[in-house]
Structure formats: C-alpha cells, structure tokens
C-alpha cells in the first residue's frame, strides 16, 4: 500500500496540534476557547477543565527551573543510523526533518539548574520529536545526566513523555532500557535521589524502565501512563477499555504513583521534596 492510501493516522505528526500559532486556541478536552497569552500564564492548562496540554522541555524549564540557572548539557548529541533503517522513509531523513521541525537534536533535553535554590540534574523529554521515542541518544543523555548527578551529588529529575523505544534503532533502543535502569541502580547505591515525573503520554519501554523507577514517581493529572498502548490492548482482548483506564488517577489508585501534582503546583511540590532530601 502506498503512503498516500494510509487509512490510519500517525502517532505524532498528523494529530491536531495542541498549540497552533494563532492568538486563540481550543482546549482539546472541553473545547473551551482560550486566549494564547492566558494559556501561557496558566502554564498550558485549561482553566475550565484542568486539561494539561502537552508541552516540551523549553516550557518545563521555564516553569520549573529558577530563572537564569539552567545550563544545557550534551545538546550536541545526535542520532546515528546503526541499522541503516528504512521504512516508508530513511531514518536519517526522519531525524533531519524532526530536527528542523522541533529545533531540537533529539527527544530529550538535559542540563543542570536550580529548583527553589537547590541544584539538580534535569532531563526533559520532548514528545514532538518522533513521539518522544527512546533511542541511543536518549539513553546516553540520561546516562550522562545520571553520571553528573553522581559526581556532583545532586538529585536527578527526569520528565517523561514518550511513546516508548524507537523502532528505527531496534536492538539498541531495547538495550537503553537496561542501560538507564542500571545507572539508576548506581544512583540508589550512592544515596542520590531520583525523581520521575510522568506526563502525557508515557508508555512502552520508557515506562518499563527509568520512568517507573523513581524514588518518587509523580504524574500530571490525566496523563496516559502504561506499558502497552490502549489500541494494542483493545486489539488483544477485543474489548472496549473502561473510562479512565491508564490515566494517572488509575495508576495512583493501583499503587504505582506517589502523587499526582497539577502543573501550577509542580515547582512548589518539587522544592518541598528536594528540601526533604536535603535536610
């Protein structure tokens, strides 16, 4: 079947953009029309229904990190093409297009900065870069950020937003699950705290590795979090999934999250938590 006959939509590229460039935007959950500057001042949440819009590392740094303290690290790392992978598009072309589209080099941004005056090693995934998928670059940047946390003896924070492992680096992507989990084991052995923040959506190999391994697991309200995607589960069991299935609130109820924190409380709550570890 040729690409122009596709009956299904892409995970990432073709979904309606949540933040168009116009002056007004519509809440994807309750259809409330929100003025753009108002949306920004509400930290990209809907005042009416509390829907949390998907945002990227740029916005999270703005929201969470003390002004002027963020120093990006390893920004130069870009993806290789170890398998010379070609599906409907060659992998290097996919990477180049994504870099152009997002002005990011891969699906994660790392660096150091202060939250409430406390220095942290900070990682934030970008869902708009090939569905936030984890390949070698994501794994290596998390590894280096964790190493930095170890050397500087500062807490590690990772904000996840990902569809899972990146298929185009097949075996390498799978091994990043083991790689990131192993370095987190070293953090634990050295008494360095790891705070995992799960945002919409966090699924697949990312959930099944570092995202679920926080000393503290925090999620944003309504975030989809799971191992298998809802579509795969529906196809497997041939049943409709119950409402709220795999939402942050569902995970909290089943005991996999420490807490759900709304975006406008996140910085305060993180400061609180970091203070607890410090004193």
């Amino acid at each position: 079947m040729a690409w122009f006959q596709r009956s299904q939509t892409n995970i990432d590229d073709t979904r309606p953009r949540e933040m168009p460039d116009g002056l007004w935007t519509k809440c994807t959950s309750c259809s409330e029309v929100i003025y753009k500057t108002e949306l920004e001042s509400q930290l990209y949440t809907c005042k009416k229904c509390n829907h949390h819009f998907r945002i990227g590392s740029k916005e999270y740094i703005e929201i969470l990190i003390d002004k002027g303290t963020f120093v990006e690290t390893e920004a130069h790392l870009t993806s290789g093409d170890p398998l010379e992978f070609v599906d409907t598009k060659a992998y290097p072309d996919r990477i180049v297009d994504s870099i152009k589209k997002t002005s990011l080099n891969d699906a994660i941004t790392t660096g150091t900065g202060k939250i409430g005056g406390i220095e942290v090693s900070f990682c934030c995934m970008n869902f708009n870069f090939i569905g936030g998928s984890m390949g070698s670059v994501v794994g290596e940047k998390i590894y280096r950020a964790a190493k930095l946390a170890l050397t500087k003896k500062i807490p590690l924070i990772i904000i996840s937003a990902s569809g899972g492992a990146r298929m185009q680096e097949a075996p390498y992507s799978l091994m990043q699950m083991a790689k990131t989990s192993a370095i987190l084991a070293e953090l634990g052995e050295n008494g360095i705290p790891f705070i995992s923040i799960l945002t919409d959506p966090t699924t697949g190999g990312v959930t099944a590795s570092f995202a679920m391994l926080g000393d503290i697991n925090i999620a944003e309200p309504g975030a989809l979090i799971g191992f298998a995607g809802p579509r795969v589960i529906e196809q497997t069991i041939r049943k409709k999934l119950p409402a709220g299935f795999q939402k942050a609130e569902f995970l909290l109820e089943h005991g996999f999250l420490d807490c759900i924190v709304a975006r406008y409380d996140l910085k305060n709550e993180l400061t609180n938590i970091l203070q607890w570890f410090k004193n």
Binding site: S79, P82, G139, Y172
Partner: peptide, 8 residues
C-alpha cells in the same frame, strides 16, 4: 550495557 548505543 552502558557501552550500547550509537550516536554522533
């Protein structure tokens, strides 16, 4: 496992 990965 740390050595696994290919990047530029």
């Amino acid at each position: 496992f740390y050595a696994m990965g290919v990047w530029q």
